[in-house]
Design a protein around this nucleic acid. Sequence first.
DNA 1: AGTTTTCGGTGTACAGTGTCCACATTAGAA
DNA 2: TTCTAATGTGGACACTGTACACCGAAAACT
Lengths: 214, 214
Amino acid sequence: MEGADANLLRRDTYRHGDLRRALLDVGVALARAGGPDAVVLREATRRAGVAPNAAYRHFADRRALLHAVCAVAQAALALAMEAELAAAPDGADAADVARARLRAVGNGYLRFAQDEPGLFRTAFAVPEALGSLAFPPGVGAGGLTAFQLLSAALDGLVEAKVLPGERRLGAEFLAWSAVHGLAMLAIDGPLRGLDRAQTDAVGQRLLDMVERGL
Amino acid sequence: MEGADANLLRRDTYRHGDLRRALLDVGVALARAGGPDAVVLREATRRAGVAPNAAYRHFADRRALLHAVCAVAQAALALAMEAELAAAPDGADAADVARARLRAVGNGYLRFAQDEPGLFRTAFAVPEALGSLAFPPGVGAGGLTAFQLLSAALDGLVEAKVLPGERRLGAEFLAWSAVHGLAMLAIDGPLRGLDRAQTDAVGQRLLDMVERGL
DNA sequence: AGTTTTCGGTGTACAGTGTCCACATTAGAA
DNA sequence: TTCTAATGTGGACACTGTACACCGAAAACT
């Protein structure tokens, strides 16, 4: 974690150095631990060792800070999906590979939700978080949004003749819905409390359904 | 709306009469307008024409009030699903009827989410809202939970030989995930802003996917 | 009936929050 | 070196949830 030392309480200079970054780091930590509601301006400034109002030099609002944290969370999600994609098998059959890549995308999503529930909820806490042009979403190492990673996987399915082209349009929303819904149910719905293995099992069945049904 | 006159500001007697009910009504109105975060204790007491602390005679906590509102929201969801079920076609082919009933359940869910986004979000705002035995969930007119309505529809599919029995176990979570995810995306995800017709179109495709993939 | 208990609403108070304003400090441009 | 713009501080206000002490009235028991 780079910049992890930026949120120190002790400070000798009047200026902080990189307060914006420090507040963002603290905000992410708060979101990680307690979800979107836990990212509290005063607590962030406190941990950064600075007066509450100092935050307003870097963020217009509490919401502005939350938006920034949200973007980081989305980036983390994209990264998790990329990691899963990188570990996907790269066999000979193009159809199998394409299917495996879609599964990897889904599994990355589900596992991120389970491993980082606070960040996951924060990623979707801001209404205008996704699809708004005024709000740049977080991207992974490859520069792609979570949504774009999913789109690419679906394109791969079409290319490998697994998915008929006429069903391609808007397929993102179908696949996304299924996985997003399961993630929600697993975080604080009736499926919470299940361990990783059990959630994975349900996840596999869900991905089966998506694969069959798309 | 019965009890709608219970939340009046004017009051001549020292006792309110049915403050618990009044607070609940106001809480539902707040949730309806602004989601879970909008159900604020002080505002509720204000609208009920009562001192802030009076609420504590009827609800242990702000969370307790929120739980109660949450149960009402779940009941409203179940009612919406029941309404859609009642309007489902009742043709001759048992398989078609069973399919139509599952679609009705899904459409009820999706339409409720779109028509009452505040209540919908409130219904799932409380972590222990679903599946906790300590927390009685809201039921519709028939006495069934939203979840139970879904279960019944799935049972119907099995009975009509549309769904093989070995795929029945846990199918609720798959169907629910898909529909719940789409509802979320339609409320404040990238699909918000779509009108009823467009959302319905995506909803139909999603239900197609579920039907094929279950 | 009259008395007492117990329920329900009030008032005051405190900690915590977001945010506004006026001010202080200092890094960097002039 | 001086001036200026950027950045952090202090104090204040309105708002929240919630605890404690109090009181008013309905109901229960003589």
